[in-house]
């Protein structure tokens, strides 16, 4: 060592202390930050907009009030979403079905006149999808309704398990993440098969 190789003062005790605290604090902070970040990212992947409080459900071409139909009129979900007890998709009702009532009911309502316009013009209504699973997931409503139907007495009680209380929603929004973990947890809890080919093939 030639003299002058290292020309630094020995730090004072207080400096060492501060540096130590800063170092350890920084490390802990980084770890906590990472974990928090991971949670936020996971949550964001799950329900993107809920994290920021923006999830109020999409705007639909016709502001269909589930509140009126389900809550006030007490209609069963399967009255409109007929396919739910037979097949994969719950299906949206054909415009013709709406018109069975709305031919006579609801004169003067702006939204209902929109509906009638659709019916007379013969164009399909392009509803905005609220719940969507990716292509590689084969989600079938029917067995779910069947399973929970036995438990909760018919399809009516089961829909809200995943879709929330739609009857109280002005705009329908997604309430569960419907990510794979969500599915798997529920399958485990209900003794449903967790083999990957249950949904992926």
């Amino acid at each position: 060592m030639i003299p002058g190789d290292f020309q630094i003062r020995k730090p004072s005790r207080i400096q060492v202390l501060i540096l130590g605290i800063l170092g350890i604090g920084g490390l802990v902070g980084a770890v906590v930050g990472l974990v928090l970040g991971a949670f936020v990212i996971t949550a964001w992947l799950g329900l993107p907009l809920d994290v920021f409080g923006l999830n109020e459900g999409p705007e639909q071409p016709i502001a269909f009030p589930h509140t009126t139909h389900v809550k006030s009129l007490g209609m069963d979900c399967t009255f409109c979403h007929r396919n739910v007890t037979v097949g994969a998709a719950a299906s949206v009702p054909a415009v013709g079905l709406c018109m069975t009532c709305h031919k006579t009911i609801g004169d003067g309502n702006e939204e209902i006149s929109k509906l009638r316009d659709y019916h007379s013009s013969g164009l399909p209504i392009n509803w905005v999808r609220v719940h969507r699973v990716p292509d590689h997931v084969n989600f079938i409503h029917e067995p779910h309704i069947r399973h929970f139907g036995e438990k909760y007495g018919g399809p009516a009680g089961t829909c809200q398990l995943c879709h929330g209380d739609v009857g109280r929603m002005v705009k329908v929004k997604q309430v569960r993440s419907l990510k794979m973990g969500d599915c798997v947890d529920c399958h485990k809890a209900n003794d449903a098969p967790t083999d990957c080919t249950t949904c992926h093939y």
Binding site: M1, D5, F6, Q7, K10
Partner: peptide, 25 residues
Amino acid sequence: AIIRDRSTGLKRKLYAGMALGFRGT
């Protein structure tokens, strides 16, 4: 630590950080 002691300015600060206060004790 050697480079730290042979440089000035920002460079010195960077090397000082990396040298972790090595003083050759």
